[in-house]
Simulated assay, not measured.
Amino acid sequence: MEAVARARFVRLVPRKARPVADLVRGKKVDEALAMLKFTPKKAAEYIYKTIKSAAANAEENQDYRDVSKLYVKEIRIDEGPAWKRYTPRAHGRASLIRKKTSHITVVLSD
């Protein structure tokens, strides 16, 4: 039995979020949530919410009552579309600023 949750278009740089995802990959859900709660990174908050959502999906959709037996089977941080913004530069030019986004996918299994 697998439960999946996705957080899409999260305003987070994938390169900075992947080390946080590596912390919890393969851990039990309770242990992963405890680790993320005290990780001082912005990515930890979004990954925490996505794991909680996947656990809720397991309870609701698959009628899985004991969430403590679940573990993080797969967690992916994929790159989403970048927002494009411009800032003024010298001599009337404009410089591109790319605000990157991420797609977070969590798969829980027993």
Rank of each mutant, 00 (worst) to 15 (best):
A90W: 06
V13G: 06
D66P: 14
T101F: 06
D63K: 15
A21L: 03
V10C: 02
Y71I: 11
I47P: 05
R98P: 01
R18Q: 00
R25L: 11
P81R: 12
R6S: 02
T50G: 08
V4M: 00
Y71S: 13
R65N: 14
R6D: 03
V106G: 03
A21T: 02
T50Y: 02
A3R: 03
E59R: 14
D66V: 15
K49I: 01
S53Q: 10
R93Q: 11
R15P: 04
T50C: 14
V20Y: 02
R93D: 06
G26H: 07
K41T: 03
A17L: 05
Y46T: 01
T101A: 06
I97H: 09
T105S: 07
T50A: 12
Q62K: 15
V13Q: 09
A32Y: 07
P88A: 12
K100F: 10
L12W: 08
G92V: 01
S68G: 13
R15D: 04
F9H: 14
P40V: 01
K100I: 10
Y48L: 09
E45D: 07
R65W: 13
L70N: 03
K27E: 13
L96M: 14
T105V: 05
L96C: 02
R25T: 03
K42C: 07
A44M: 08
Y48I: 07
E79D: 12
D30R: 13
G80L: 08
D66Y: 13
I104G: 00
V20R: 00
E45W: 01
D63Y: 13
R15A: 07
A44H: 04
K49S: 01
V24W: 05
K37S: 10
